[in-house]
């Protein structure tokens, strides 16, 4: 359950927002309530907070532009999530986008050693970030958004079989890494 992070009037509104849909929320109220969820999903998709913010802002701008035309207000969140995923996949199809590698610090220091897998949350997260965008998207939708395979297929515009294959490849790769750490998979307890 999402709660508004701050009142809409605190967001520096300088222009009129689109008109309220017939029986749905106005854009600003919806934004206040749901932006956090979009930010979190975008972070998991992109692997970077700044890239996530850029992705969310683009998605919000497109949503704002078409707000009046969104009739199915009952599925607003699903609609926004689909736009977010589509925007992410579109961005990752652009070759120049892949050239951008955002880091927190200026990269003039020696490169860190390649991450080693130690089974921690951080290591699993690093592993997820190395996955191809399509596999990562499937994992995020399946294990964070808790969507069914059929829902993921519909959202991504791919077949259920592709969802299964993408998911199983990613999990197999993770399982292979877990083989070195049986304590994480519970093997040592058997």
């Amino acid at each position: 359950m999402e709660t508004p992070m701050e009142p809409p009037h605190a967001r520096g509104v300088v222009m009129a927002t689109p008109a309220r849909t017939s029986d749905g929320p106005d854009f600003e109220s919806w934004l206040a309530a749901r932006e956090g969820a979009l930010q979190r999903t975008a972070h998991l998709l992109t692997g970077d907070v700044h890239a996530a913010q850029d992705l969310v802002q683009t998605t919000l701008a497109k949503l704002y532009r078409g707000w009046d035309r969104i009739r199915d207000v009952g599925n607003l969140d699903a609609y926004a999530r689909q736009m977010l995923v589509n925007e992410f996949r579109t961005a990752w199809r652009r070759p120049v986008r892949r050239a951008e590698h955002l880091v927190e610090a200026v990269p003039d220091l020696p490169a860190p050693e390649p991450p080693s897998y130690d089974g921690s949350t951080e290591a699993v997260w690093r592993f997820v970030c190395t996955l191809p965008p399509k596999q990562r998207t499937v994992l995020v939708l399946r294990f964070y958004e808790q969507l069914t395979e059929a829902e993921i297929a519909q959202l991504m515009g791919i077949s259920v079989g592709t969802v299964k294959s993408q998911s199983s490849r990613a999990i197999a790769a993770l399982r292979a890494r877990l083989a070195d750490h049986p304590e994480l998979s519970g093997e040592e307890e058997r």
Binding site: M5, E6, P8, R11, G12, V13, V14, M15, T17, F27, E28, L31, E35, G36, Q39, R40, H43, L44, V49, A52, Q53, V56, Q57, L60, A61, Y64, T121, V124, W125, V128, L139, V140, F143, Y144, I171, L174, R175, L178, L184, S185, G186
Partner: peptide, 28 residues
Amino acid sequence: TPEDLLTRTFAEVTETTDYPTTPMATVV
């Protein structure tokens, strides 16, 4: 299981990150 690990990781990553809010003016 790997599935449980993924669920836990996704939850921890998002719960331990502070996300900025987008001003309405930026959206416009």
